[in-house]
Every structure is written in C-alpha cells, then in structure tokens.
Design a protein around this nucleic acid. Structure first.
Lengths: 231, 231
DNA sequence: AAGAGGGTCATAAAATATTCACAAAGCGGT
DNA sequence: ACCGCTTTGTGAATATTTTATGACCCTCTT
C-alpha cells in the first residue's frame, strides 16, 4: 500500500526541507516546488494527492496559485493546505474563501501538520486492494477472483491460500509454512491436508484451461509460478 | 437552490443564540441542540448538511458525538466543525483525528465562522439523495426503496442495512462491521442477528422475483452484489 | 389490546475441511 | 532400464463449521 503524493510549495529552503523531510518520514511521497510557476507546471504534468501551499511566494502568490488550481476542472477538487506567517484572521478567511481546504499559521508543529494532512487525505484513501499474477486478479475488497476475466469461485481456505501465494509470487513454501500463514484454526492439521487444498485450488484455477499456475517443488512445497514448460 | 440546513450543538444559550442568529441572517436553516443526546436524536431523524459542534457539552462530549456520527453509515460523511475554548494544539489534533472537518477556537468572529461554513459546504456538497444499484433505487429523502419500479416496504433496520450496503456496493462486510455501521449504537447484539436481518432484507428485495442481490461470502460476511450465476 | 419490528434460539441445510487409503509419479543407485 | 523408496495426486468417506429458516418472545406504538 503506497502512501499519497504530496507537493510542497515553499520558497524558504529551510522550511521546505523541514516539512519535506518529516512528511517523507511519515511515508508520503513528497515533491517540492520553490515558487508558484514551478508548482503549477508540475501539477499540470502530474497531479499530486494534496498540495501544501505557502501564502507568500516569489512571483505568483499562493492565493493566486490556489485560485488558478480551482479554475481548472482537473484540479478543482485537489485538496490544498495553505500556511503563512500572518496570523491575522482576515487572511485565514481569505485563504479559505479562495478554496483552500485548511490553513496553518507559521510556525506550526509537525504534529499539527500531520494531523491536517491525515484528516484531509482520509477523504480519499487509495488502497492496495487488488492482487495480480499473470491474468489472475484478486479483489480483496469484493472478495472476488478471476482468471482471464472468468470469475472463479473459491472456498474460504482456498481463497486464503491463494491470497497468501499471490502476496509472495514465485516463492516456494513448505506445507508447514502454508499451514501457518493461510490457516486460521490453531488445531493440529495434517500436513497432507495442504495437498488436498492445493489440488482444489488448482482445479478451480485451471477449470477454464491455461497452464497450471501452481508449481510443485518436490520435497519442498508449492509456489505460485508461471514458468512451467522447460521443453 | 435553498441554503443548507445546519445543526448547532452548544450548551451555552448566549453563544448558541449568537451563532444561530448570525447564520440565519446568512440564509441558512439553523436548528439548535443543547446537548449531545438531543443532537444525536435530531440527526437520527433529519440529517443536516453540516454540524457545528461544541467540544464541551453536558453529558456526552462533543468528541464522542463526533465519533458516533462517524460510525454510522448515514452520517459518516456528514461535515462537522468543532469549536472549543481550549486553544491547545493537542486538542485540535484530537478533534481532527476523530473526524472533525474543521476546528475553531473560542472566541471566534462571525466572519471566521462564515468562512469555515462556506468552505466546508463548498467541498462537501450534500450527500447523495438517491442511491442506485442495478434496478434498486433508494431515495434517502423520502425514505422509499423500489426495485424494478415496484415499491418495497422495509423495516427501519433493514433500511439502514440496505443503505449501508448501497453506499459500498460489491464490498464484503463482516457481521461485526454491519452491526457497527448499520445498527443504532445500543446494547450488544448477537452476531447471528445479522443473518436474520439479511434474510428479511432478501425476502423483501426478492419478493417480486429477480436474482438475489445479496451475496453470502462464507466465513466472511455479506455484500450487495449481482450474484453472477456460473452457468 | 393488537400489530410491528427486532432480537434470540434451536434446528435443518449447506458448504467446507480433514483424513485416509491407494494410485501415480519422481528420484537415486545399480 | 529396472528397482525400491519417497513424495505427491486423487477420490471418497466423514467430520466440522457456517448459514438459512421458522418460531417465539419482548417492547414500543398506535
């Protein structure tokens, strides 16, 4: 699951570095622009998930950047957090009025910044909900699996087993490991039981034709793997 | 286009009156609740477009009110502006973290308030009035549901359950999640109870014929889904 | 008091999981 | 290639778990 892309627009190198550094440490992808021109140009090319915008900028002001972003359909809904040195209320109001989603007064703590960023991003969380392997697609949210567009129907255990394998493609796991990771029940289960489930998984996976996606590694275990025919 | 409905939750009569009066002058429809209980009860009956919530309230705290609103599917996206006398940063953060959309520190000017209200309403346009899934249509205002034009009659609980599912189509939810989001917060309810309501919902949904729109995912839960019958 | 709506339970029905026994297939040594 | 020892694939019987249902009771409204 990868975190959001942020764009920091700030002309003061020290502050820019401080903010960028800390946000990166939180796991965000952070880009930096030193002025409004650069920022707008960057956004035109690759729209970030959130913009942190300083009010005072050389050239185009932050307020103006904000306004222009709001004009474009592509960026009209792009979340913006503005910050400035002025604590005057009138500015805050103007900022929000122009379309900023939030407002921070310098100096602000990193915790305050994180809280705002988190709050804003919560509205549109991207998720690593789809696993893929070859033409196999598993949607973990809707709990559906398909191969070549054909929908497959898997029992709970086969589903978990496949999920685990898809999370670690091409890797060989012993029966013990598979039991440990893909089984919920703690009671002792025969190692050979894994064989049976692998068989059922294979059956379902291959019912529409196509190569066997599960490789048996003698004396070791199984792996989700494509390369099969070493003719 | 008529202005938004606001709910002011504030126990101090003077402040409540001041805020209400001024917002009304701006053209908003303003309702007032003096404590959390009343507020939650009001929201249950008629969902406003935005809530102005004091942090300190007799009985249930504003933070708690906020949290409960977020849990319920019906109100999960409802914009909330919190305000309190404390200006401490930690509180601001906690407030935002709980899901408040904005935060004002008392005392605040009416202009500041207007700006926030406007900003919030602009970015969170009134929630969907009509939910659709396949030929299912739910009108959240008139509280009516129909399938293929045939009107259905659902009990309150089945209605909330269906509403929640329609808000997240094709997504599988565990019984715990369904209880959490579609039930009124109250006493503990058996997980199996969900089965019963799902059954009642199915009965009503399918009484006019047609495929079952609720998919059972064994060992996981249920999802609103067009159950694709494998040939 | 009657009717709704909602929560629990017991039980029937399904859907899956686990084992087992034996066939099949792979491997190493001769 | 042939054998014997292992490890894996299968099919079927059996055991478990999870869902679907129908009935019943309770509470709140009307």
């Amino acid at each position: 699951m990868h975190k959001a892309d942020l764009l920091v627009v700030e002309d003061d190198p020290a502050l820019a570095r401080l903010v960028s550094y800390n946000l990166e440490k939180q796991g965000y992808m952070v880009r930096h622009a030193a002025d409004g021109e650069v920022a707008l140009e960057y956004v035109r090319q690759r729209r970030p998930d959130l913009i942190l915008l300083d009010w005072m900028l050389p050239g185009i002001s932050g307020l103006e950047v904000c306004r222009r972003l709001r004009e474009q359909a592509r960026t009209a809904a792009l979340p913006i957090i503005m910050f400035s040195a002025r604590g005057e209320e009138a500015d805050t109001i103007r900022g929000l009025d122009t379309g900023a989603d939030d407002y921070l007064v310098k100096p602000f703590s990193m915790d305050a910044l994180f809280a705002r960023v988190k709050a804003i991003l919560r509205r549109a969380p991207p998720a690593d909900k789809t696993l893929r392997f070859d033409t196999l697609v598993m949607d973990r949210v809707s709990h559906k699996v398909e191969r070549d567009g054909r929908q497959l129907s898997l029992g709970p255990t086969e589903y978990r087993l496949l999920e685990f394998l898809m999370l670690h493609p091409a890797q060989v796991f012993s029966r013990e490991e598979l039991l440990k990771h893909a089984w919920e029940r703690s009671s002792f289960v025969e190692l050979r039981t894994v064989d049976v489930h692998i068989r059922r998984l294979r059956q379902t996976l291959n019912e529409g034709g196509g190569v066997d996606l599960i490789r048996t590694v003698r004396a070791r275990g199984y792996a989700l793997d494509k390369a099969q025919d070493p003719d």
